[in-house]
Design a protein around this nucleic acid. Structure first.
Lengths: 336, 336
DNA sequence: ATGAAAGCGCTAACAC
DNA sequence: GTGTTAGCGCTTTCAT
């Protein structure tokens, strides 16, 4: 088993210099067709595969961008990653993904790994990274953007939507339908600033309403199962809530499922609204009222922002993506 | 704007040699605490970030593996990628993903790009790549495995399930419930060998049944919307089918949705079975009978196989993953 | 159009 | 425990 062929081997075999071989790969037009053919034949004979590392060391570019995501096993992040990857590809950039499980220590470790393998830029979720993470990014001066929220005063450029606006869109919808006793189903907020922002917005609304609005909060894992359990708890100790506001469509789906299996009807017994607008949400039973969040688009925007940052060295501005309510059949006016 | 600091800069500042600096990074134990501190201080002062490329050129390893997937915006591939990434991470490997949209030309182009950025191994979906793709892989001798199917005679090591078995599991279930006129809803099979294998298995079963079993086939895009349209076509020209066999849960979900909105009941009017077993499938209305495919596990297995291949140079064996029927409420005995 | 030669930033013998 | 030095495989002037 002989070692991998390199430029010199090819040059020797083709009877040219290494410079010429390099030119065949990078600027074929500057090589005469004749020699070009000889070189290509030699490459092929020797099964030549150029070394990415050697190239990168010279050009100083790896064409690689890293995304640090809580998980991929979740439609939101998966669709985000899909949009991101597609758009990065158009710029000749590749996407390496690392999942963090929302653990700040893992996030830092993965960021370190990403730089170790040569990532030129990083994308993170949310803007509440650990102090160490922040120090790390600043020390290495690696272009980094945050997605999933739009927040002018964040330490990173943020590309996302206004989470406060989003939850209030859902709330206003329910209030206009006459609901004012609402069960709120949300995920863990320990390391999730999107959830925190949404909760905070609701608490402010509750205060502002001065008694005309009351919430009962149910925390549950970010899954269909979690939503289902939250609904079970809601009914086990039933109050006078007439609606459920879930922070994600997945949770909403779980809620609806459990309500159904306990013999209740949506929207007759409970109006349910979600947030996100998964592709499948319009086909739930009943079709889910939700706040549409442009996740795929967010991926594309993040790709553009980073591609330009890498290109011209100018840190991008924050970007707010539009959101809107998708009113469907899971919510109706309160039954009086 | 001065250039990025390198090993020599750090060495100079710390008053040591480059070798010592290198040691501080790689074998800190072999450096006296005193000098180690000086070096670390210098690194920090100069905001030193080691060059991944330079390291890779010396070690010959990039610690990077590439996955070529049709899309990430699909729970199956996303969960696969999640398992893959998590397990690769445990081996110190990073995952770069590239989406192909099931286009063989794109697949080849992306494979090329993956090698250009230094991927040490490749994961592809299915085993029916173009001849060019195959030539490419063989020419560069890059370790490559195929997932989503198990097929002993494939040109690549395959890690997946037996698609024929899978579809027959669903079919047998329906037949045992007394269904023998079945609508089959499947995705496009142009470049998708999993779909082709499943269709082929059904055709064989149809022949073997010798008239006791008949299928009507509906091709639709791989989406809820696609399943919905297929159901509309099924009803527009209604035959005497009593059951629907969908090749994916997503399609099954679309079918059920449309049946409902046209006033039909599942499973009373139609039994519906899917394939895949998405996390949400048990919470559909009604809970979906489906064939459970261990997608996340497949990602983990692929990671193991590649990690070992890169480690010991031995091409892995094919691996068959277990599948099973998850019988739920969307299918019942034929109403007589 | 082609070649010679100087690095790119790091690792790994090998020597002290 | 630390330093010297020879590469790793390529790109890129600068000549010719």
């Amino acid at each position: 088993m002989k070692k991998r062929a390199n430029l010199r081997d090819v040059a020797q075999r083709a009877g040219v210099s290494v410079a010429t071989v390099s030119r065949v790969m990078n600027t074929p037009a500057r090589v005469s067709p004749d020699t070009r053919n000889r070189v290509e034949a030699a490459m092929s004979d020797l099964r030549f595969t150029p070394s990415a590392a050697a190239r990168a060391i010279n050009t100083g570019r790896t064409q690689t961008v890293a995304a640090l995501l809580p998980t991929l096993a979740n439609s939101t992040f998966a669709r985000f990653a899909d949009g991101l990857e597609a758009r990065l590809g158009a710029f000749g950039l590749s996407l390496v993904v690392a999942t963090t499980g929302e653990d700040p220590e893992v996030e830092l470790a993965r960021a370190r790994q990403m730089l170790n393998i040569g990532a030129e830029a990083i994308i993170v979720t949310g803007a509440s990274q650990s102090a160490d993470f922040r120090a790390f990014v600043e020390r290495h001066m690696v272009p980094t953007v945050s997605v999933s929220l739009f927040q002018q005063d964040a330490w990173l450029p943020t590309i996302g939507y206004d989470n406060q606006k989003a939850v209030l869109l859902a709330l206003d919808h329910l209030m206009q339908l006459g609901h004012h006793k609402i069960a709120v189903v949300h995920g863990p907020h320990g390391h999730n600033d999107r959830t925190r922002i949404r909760l905070e917005a609701l608490k402010q609304a509750e205060v502002a309403a001065n008694g005309a609005l009351t919430f009962r909060y149910f925390e549950a894992p970010f899954s269909v199962q979690g939503g289902s359990e939250a609904a079970a708890r809601l009914l086990a100790q039933r109050g006078d809530e007439t609606a459920v506001l879930a922070f994600t469509d997945v949770l909403a789906g779980g809620v609806i499922h459990r309500l159904h299996s306990l013999g209740l009807k949506v929207p007759q017994d409970f109006s349910v609204v979600g947030m996100e607008d998964l592709p499948s949400s319009a086909s739930l039973y009943p079709p889910l009222t939700t706040v549409h969040l442009p996740v795929r688009r967010m991926g594309e925007q993040a790709a553009e922002a980073l591609a330009q940052w890498l290109d011209n060295g100018i840190r991008p501005d924050h970007q707010e993506l539009p959101i809107e309510l998708a009113a469907r059949s899971s919510s109706v006016a309160r039954q009086t």
